[in-house]
């Protein structure tokens, strides 16, 4: 399969994948570090050629357009590129012990440490979102009966002038926005119908204030993690 990734990544960098292949591969890049690495290697192999193309000065008007288009703030802080965001599913072990199905009715979802002592856990699926396998930055819990998702920041650096947008990636589907993160405290999302039969990845990207203008992540994806369903005994 390594060769397969390599040829796909090579064609991706060349730009010769067809539309459907390219989209599928881009979705894979959100969660597959090996594919990301293969793309980086191909870029490295071929880029000397790109830089050997003869220069050509653009018209002086162009800067006027570009300078005027630069918004008031960009992505401050030393974000890693979205390509290096990786899955940190192992971290869910943190909260995966002693968890049973919660009763149908109950108090609002508690913070994750409550789940560990957990007389009645309020979620059945969980994801720990981190940056490149680092310590978890966010903990996501999902209660499929109430269709509620709760996103708790554990260690999230503020991004002044930006919004952090949450995305769900179901199987091989395109990332779907599920909303913006609150700037303080936990974000609660209701009416979230997730099909947990599918592999589900939650990701966070840095977007302009108010969220992505395109419906797909436009800024770097800084955290991602895979949803894991907990034993229901």
């Amino acid at each position: 399969m390594a060769d397969d990734i390599d040829m796909l990544a090579g064609e991706y960098v060349l730009g010769t994948l067809d539309e459907a292949e390219r989209r599928a591969f881009e979705r894979r890049l959100l969660t597959d570090p090996a594919a990301v690495a293969a793309v980086a290697t191909w870029q490295e192999r071929l880029s000397p050629l790109l830089l050997a193309v003869p220069e050509e000065a653009p018209s002086s008007r162009l800067w006027t357009r570009i300078g005027a288009g630069a918004g008031p703030a960009n992505d401050n802080g030393r974000l890693r590129r979205w390509q290096v965001a990786t899955v940190a599913a192992a971290l869910v072990a943190l909260v995966s012990t002693g968890v049973a199905l919660r009763p149908h009715a109950g108090p609002p979802a508690p913070a994750p440490q409550v789940a560990q002592q957990a007389p009645s856990p309020l979620f059945q699926s969980v994801a720990a979102l981190s940056e490149q396998g680092g310590a978890p930055a966010l903990l996501v819990t999902y209660d499929r009966e109430r269709k509620e998702m709760r996103v708790m920041p554990v260690n999230v650096a503020p991004r002044p002038g930006h919004s952090l947008e949450l995305w769900v990636i179901a199987g091989k589907a395109a990332p779907k926005s599920i909303g913006l993160m609150r700037e303080d405290g936990a974000t609660e999302l209701d009416r979230m119908a997730l099909d947990l039969q599918q592999e589900m990845t939650i990701a966070v990207s840095v977007e302009p204030k108010g969220g992505s203008p395109t419906g797909l992540p436009t800024g770097p994806v800084i955290y991602s993690g895979r949803m894991v369903s907990l034993p229901t005994s």
Binding site: L62, A70, D75, L79, R80, V84, T218, G219
Partner: peptide, 20 residues
Amino acid sequence: AEDAMQEAYAKIWRNAAGFD
């Protein structure tokens, strides 16, 4: 080509922090 340049530099401005 100039349209593409405008879009490219907008991305550079937005994502400069992503440069590694």
